[in-house]
Nucleic acid binder design. Structure first.
Lengths: 112, 112
DNA sequence: ACATAATATGCCTTGACAGGAATATTCCTG
DNA sequence: CAGGAATATTCCTGTCAAGGCATATTATGT
């Protein structure tokens, strides 16, 4: 999961993902459209690939990169645990205040 | 959107978010539970706050940090454009091959 | 006003990582 | 098998950001 976020944290890598949303593309096609140099694109694709966000299919000398559904679904699943946050009003003030009582003596970041 | 990903890319920051999923907490409480030092927690919370993922409420000297729904909903909305990826089989081989024709001469990352 | 609790900030050092350029690898075609 | 196209890899360098530590800031109670 962490690999997913750090992969998408890089602006160019995020651009690549958004580009591949429309259709799979060979490395050169990606480089051309995003005005990036081929080696960088290859490196970024490597990271995206290791994060499971992208998959390759070789055709002749080119390698066609496309999005990998499972990788993005993983992100979607992670979000599942947070969906209750919007659309509902919860976590009343009282709850917060009662939580504060439990924090007595646990302050100031003493480790262990 | 990019700020969101880079904020969540940091392991400790992701941990903080996952911790706050259960309930809002003061800085010291976060530091204690995650075995981190208070200054780091404050810094991480700053980043999360600037990314709109977290919100503060001052209570006495403490500051109670909790998740901010809109921040995570933004992520959810971004994913919306990718949901069609799973569960459907699309992008046939023929489509890819026809795309390749369009790539003629666009190769090797020459910029501009 | 003072002592103290809770948190934020500043400075410094170190490690990770992106970009650039050159080169290696792989695959096709004549 | 020579040549070229498409892509991957390597080495180098500069930048940025996280951690540690000290200190500043804000709020509370007496």
């Amino acid at each position: 999961m962490n690999a997913t976020f750090s992969a998408l944290a890089e602006p160019n890598r995020l651009q690549i993902v958004e580009l591949l949303r429309h259709r799979p593309l060979p490395v050169g096609g990606i480089a051309h459209r995003l005005r990036m140099r081929q080696p960088q694109v290859s490196k970024h694709l490597r990271v995206l690939s290791e994060a499971g966000l992208v998959q390759v299919r070789p055709v002749a000398q080119q390698r066609i990169y496309g999005l990998r559904a499972e990788g993005l679904k993983e992100l979607d699943d992670w979000l599942e645990g947070y969906r209750r946050l919007w659309g509902e009003r919860f976590e009343q003030l009282d709850d917060v205040l009662s939580d504060l009582q439990q924090e007595k003596g646990n302050t100031n970041g003493n480790r262990k």
